[in-house]
Design a binder for these strands. Structure first.
Lengths: 221, 221
DNA sequence: ATGCAAATTATTGTATACATTAGCCATACA
DNA sequence: TGTATGGCTAATGTATACAATAATTTGCAT
């Protein structure tokens, strides 16, 4: 993507993810021109791309709004994520390489360290989530299906939009960590069915951990 | 989408689907301006959208090319389609309404008639494929997941791009018809596992029916 | 005061001019 | 003859002017 367009895309996308532009907020092109310091053309291209990725909704002659997510949307999203991510885990179990496996084992080990370290809960969860993303991405890549990877990236990002700064309890993080250890076992054993089952469990658990956050956001738009 | 942009989008997309612009063909903006009778701005917007939908590939400062599909791409595509379409069938079996079921039954019946009628093989398969699309779409909608529907629409369209005018043998069509009848049974019985299994079978069979066509198209690009 | 209609304004859609970049060809030099 | 370099050309990237559309406000009549 070109310079100005990329800049506009990144800027707007970050603003949405950080909540600077909240759901249903109108995104006027001239305002974005000032905000991103590029002309209208790249702003429009960025908005079209964001619409394709479901970050915004564009209506003819009525501009773009930040997409808002209903509880039902999130249910669908997690349901699909469980399906696809389970599929990815199964494929990964069949074809993962030693270095890839070592990388995932490394992530799990780092997570253990983080949880053992003495630091604020917030810092802990932040660090944990970073490692979590890394681990999941590694499994996706090990699935060997580019298309699957890109679909999952989109699904996960959209889930992030819906509840910007979700707070996770320490128990929730511990549960998640346990799933990761089991995943590592299943992948090491090269057992697709097991890996798929653990992953599906993992994702469904995550969806329900979010439930309270979601209930507070009735559907708009 | 706006008028000029929509026109450009439809025109280019049709040209790709019909093979007027074959895989790897360079799509120069100025040529498309002449071809679509709109200015460069809507042409560019159309190209970006087509890129988001995987019809074309855009490289910075190097314009757009019609995407070409490798055999591996098609394997991934059908593998995902089997997964998602199986999921849709399972969901549909649990929640399908009487009118929806009647609609699908109607499609199956029409297909029987078409196969019984005396007409050229080409006309038969064309008509059959039209009804086939209608039936699948009906099942997707009955799944009750908008996102699932849009993902499947994209996957199926991309499969169409790869082998514009695939020829189907009459045996292949008959097999397909048999699957549809079984699907109808499974949906009527409200049996998700059965519906999913039939659908997965159906899609995998379709993928292998295409195998010869694909082998003739080595990966480029 | 309220509802409707016309005019005004704000915003998006489209076209086009200008800027920048990449690819190509010719030429010079080893 | 082969390779590298420099400029030329053609394409894309960006900005902006103009057109069309939708929202808003204002004025008038009831």
């Amino acid at each position: 993507m070109s310079n100005a367009t990329e800049r506009a895309y990144e800027t707007i996308r970050n603003a949405i993810l950080e909540g600077t532009f909240p759901p249903t907020a109108r995104l006027k092109e001239t305002e974005l021109v000032a905000y991103c310091r590029v002309s209208r053309t790249p702003v429009r291209e960025a908005l079209r791309r964001l619409a394709a990725e479901d970050f915004v909704v564009i209506q003819r002659n009525q501009g773009a709004r930040v997409k808002s997510w209903s509880a039902e949307d999130l249910d669908e999203l997690f349901s699909l994520r469980a399906l696809l991510e389970g599929h990815a885990a199964a494929r990964a179990a069949s074809r993962i390489s030693q270095p890839e496996l070592a990388g995932i084992a490394g992530s799990v080990q780092e997570m253990s360290k983080v949880l053992g370290r003495s630091m604020s809960q917030k810092n802990k969860t932040t660090e944990f989530l970073r490692l979590n993303s890394k681990l999941h991405e590694a499994i996706w890549l090990a699935s060997g299906s580019e298309r699957l990877v890109s679909m999952l990236r989109q699904l996960v990002e959209q889930a992030l939009t819906a509840h910007t700064a979700a707070q996770f309890s320490l128990e929730r993080v511990a549960q998640s960590h346990h799933h990761h250890e089991e995943l590592l076992q299943a992948l090491s054993a090269g057992d697709p069915a097991w890996a798929e089952a653990v992953m599906r469990n993992h994702i469904h658990a995550a969806r329900h951990a979010l439930a309270p956050t979601i209930a507070a956001t009735p559907d708009q738009q």
